[in-house]
């Protein structure tokens, strides 16, 4: 089983972009998609037996969509309220002896104030982000092609 985990708060405008992506995904066999406000230790229980996991998150750096491979943190240090993706994979290794291969798809966000709508600039990235996630979900091997974004995969 593979997982796509969208992270963010839909009441904080562009922070909710990952939840929008998750809601737009078609069903793909052996891939589960879920949206969460934040990463918590309980997610390790889902990841123990997973093959791959893609985290989708908003970022506040001024660059385009980026897909990156990530590795488990060797010494996870996050708090229970604010685990990073690497910390979560590191905790999964600690608890389960292994962790799935990890990726992060980051989508630029510009407005994180209260509100349920995306900014125009983040909304403009939505289709490309959904397409990138769908490609990742359907991928059995080989490179994920990004449209108008950066691909920093190590594969």
């Amino acid at each position: 089983m593979d997982f796509v985990i969208g992270i963010g708060n839909t009441l904080r405008r562009d922070d909710g972009v990952a939840a929008r992506v998750i809601a737009s995904l078609p069903p793909v066999p052996n891939v589960a998609a879920l949206a969460v406000h934040q990463l918590t230790p309980e997610l390790t229980l889902r990841l123990c037996d997973a093959s791959r996991v893609l985290f989708v998150d908003a970022h506040c750096h001024d660059h385009e969509i980026a897909l990156q491979r990530i590795a488990p943190a060797p010494a996870p240090v996050g708090s229970v309220h604010a685990l990073s993706q690497q910390d979560l994979l590191g905790l999964t290794v600690e608890l389960c002896g292994r962790a799935p291969h990890g990726w992060v798809l980051s989508i630029p966000g510009y407005d994180f104030e209260f509100g349920e709508t995306l900014s125009d600039r983040t909304h403009a990235h939505l289709d490309a982000a959904i397409e990138a996630v769908v490609q990742w979900m359907r991928r059995q091997g080989g490179e994920v092609k990004m449209q108008g974004g950066r691909n920093e995969e190590a594969s």
Partner: peptide, 21 residues
């Protein structure tokens, strides 16, 4: 924190996470 707890008692930490879950 929970990671320090893991270092001290991994079995308890694993059980705790499963209980909350």
């Amino acid at each position: 924190n929970v990671f320090g707890l893991w270092e001290k008692d991994p079995d308890l930490t694993r059980r705790a996470i499963r209980l909350r879950s």
